[in-house]
């Protein structure tokens, strides 16, 4: 199994304040991976670093064994819904077509074939009949689906999604997860910043537990343990006590269904 994304020794700092400390991560090809961690854990920063949107202080990122710059076409990005102004004067189809702008090339306009592709992507997310809708008229779930469609037309091999389930209705959530599974069965790799711990085992194959440092990563069954979650959310104190020389994270066996102990409400609110 080869790695779709490989992150080595990644440190990102804003004004010398580390946001990510020495992260190592391998995302195997063809999996759905969740990134979970409390607010301010650096989840979004990690995704942005992989996409080259923030400059790391140290470390290296490889997409299918090569640098991001040479593999740009193979990476699709779904930013947080709240990161754009939804009152921008444009319609749904136009936003989706933006996913193709990277390959249309300079000085050229999107043509009929591009619009057909965009419409097709909209069909996949169940939004084809909203193609002409102004984007400010969309519900939160619909906005999210538009962003997903925009990523779909990129026809990438790796998708990075920043909280696609944030504030969407149940229907949209089901539609998104069905779509993610379809992508996986097409051999694509999807990395998702995720907030809802309850659904991690159901939705994802792999998980990264992140709180500035990588606390654990690997198959959900192996690393999504209560102990790891406590380390991630409960505090960084756990790490200090770790005996020197021992591996920073040991697998303590899979977590049974009792996830109630660690719920979203226990996230330290740092922001």
């Amino acid at each position: 199994m080869s790695a779709a994304v490989e992150v080595r020794d990644l440190t990102v700092a804003y004004r010398e304040r580390p946001v990510l400390w020495d992260i190592d991560l391998i995302v195997p090809e063809g999996v759905l991976m969740a990134i979970v961690g409390p607010n301010g854990a650096g989840k979004t920063t990690l995704i942005k670093a992989v996409l080259g949107l923030v400059k790391p202080a140290a470390g290296e990122i490889l997409i299918y064994g090569k640098s991001f710059a040479s593999q740009q076409r193979r990476v699709g990005y779904v930013p947080q819904r709240g990161s754009v102004d939804w009152d921008f004067p444009t319609n749904v189809l136009d936003v989706v077509t933006m996913g193709l702008y990277g390959r249309i090339g300079w000085f050229r306009r999107p043509g009929r074939a591009d619009r057909t592709k965009a419409l097709h992507a909209l069909e996949k997310v169940g939004m084809a009949d909203h193609a002409d809708r102004q984007i400010s008229q969309l519900s939160g779930g619909q906005q999210q689906r538009v962003f997903l469609a925009r990523a779909l037309v990129q026809d990438a091999d790796v998708y990075l999604m920043d909280e696609p389930f944030q504030g969407v209705d149940a229907t949209t959530e089901r539609a998104i997860i069905a779509l993610l599974r379809e992508l996986r069965s097409d051999g694509k790799t999807v990395v998702v910043v995720h907030h809802d711990l309850q659904t991690v085992p159901e939705y994802f194959d792999e998980v990264l537990l992140l709180n500035v440092r990588r606390l654990a990563s690997g198959p959900v069954g192996d690393v999504f343990t209560e102990e790891n979650l406590r380390k991630t959310y409960g505090g960084r104190v756990g790490f200090v006590g770790a005996p020197a020389g021992s591996p920073p994270i040991a697998n303590r066996g899979p977590l049974p269904e009792r996830l109630g102990g660690v719920s979203r409400s226990r996230e330290p609110s740092r922001n």
């Binding site: 942005k48 996409l51 080259g52 949107l53 740009q72 076409r73 990476v75 990005y77 930013p79 990161s83 754009v84 102004d85 921008f88 444009t90 936003v95 933006m98 996913g99 702008y101 990277g102 249309i104 300079w106 306009r109 999107p110 925009r150 990129q154």
Partner: peptide
């Protein structure tokens, strides 16, 4: 189209090169 993306979603624009 470049200015449109720049105005609407610059991060996405950077991610597509």
């Amino acid at each position: 189209k470049e200015f449109k993306v720049l105005s609407f979603d610059p991060d996405f624009g950077r991610s597509i090169g």
